[in-house]
Amino acid sequence: MTDTAIEAAALGKRFGGPSRRGGWALRDCGFRLPAGRICAVVGPNGAGKSTLLAHAAGLLEPTEGTLTVLGSHPSAARERIAYVAQDKPLYPQLTVTETLRLGHELNPGRWDAALAERIVTDGHLDPAARIRDLSGGQRTRVALALVLGKRPELLLLDEPMADLDPLARHQLMGTLLAEAAEHGTTVVMSSHILGELAHACDFLLLVGDGRIRLGGAIDDLVAAHRLITGRGPLTDALAPHTVIESRATGRGLTALIRPAGPIAPGWEAAEPSLEDILLAHLRSPDAPALLTPGATARSSASDMSAAVTA
């Protein structure tokens, strides 16, 4: 048993062929996700979110660096991991009932048939319907029934809610979080819709340009930033702090900073929302990365490969 769900050290992945970033989809990623968290992976399109999730699922091998899952190599932990790719791959010719039976037979000893069936029934799906005849949202529901029925310790979901209607999204998110709460499941969900995840998650990884730009418990990340507003000489007010973004507002200035010491008198400091922080970082791609102590990898890459081979 380990208190770490995912740990990456100097993780890099290079795909063949010419592309942005010289073919590097991920570069120099290091972070730690403690077990039992509900983690949002956010970032612009093409940032590396899906590549990161596919590594955690054991479907991709790193080009450099290491990634461990539940204390071992992802391929060794596969029984305890469930993963839904963005395109929700299922067998189109199987019926809903047959798909759930497949889930049962592939996961002997851990399958929760009642839960899987309830998720399908909640969506009023015809058990005899073939997967290929279902809508995108209905397929998502079947995919979530499969992965939740598996009762994984780590659940990896790549844009899970994108094609669900608002009611189904709310209902499935509720079921997912309730199951996670009851069983202590670690959940990692990617999305580029910030609002979708802000209330459901308590941990965040912001991926940008193949790197981890922000990582940590959401409360800690919020506490590390301040939104300051005021008038006066810019340099005096901002000097000791790390400025993520500053913008003119009327005659004054608003800035998102990571304070280093007291804030100059005459400046209003407020706690930013998670959305303020994410948008400021997305608009300022050169802002320095921040990993809170709880989100920092504890072992070096060489320690971890030793642990994996041991």
Binding site: I38, G174, L177, A178, H199, A200, D202
Partner: peptide, 13 residues
């Protein structure tokens, strides 16, 4: 669990 299921908010909240 009941609150989380009904509101879809984080259990720790």
């Amino acid at each position: 669990r009941e609150v989380v299921e009904a509101t879809a908010i984080n259990p720790n909240t």
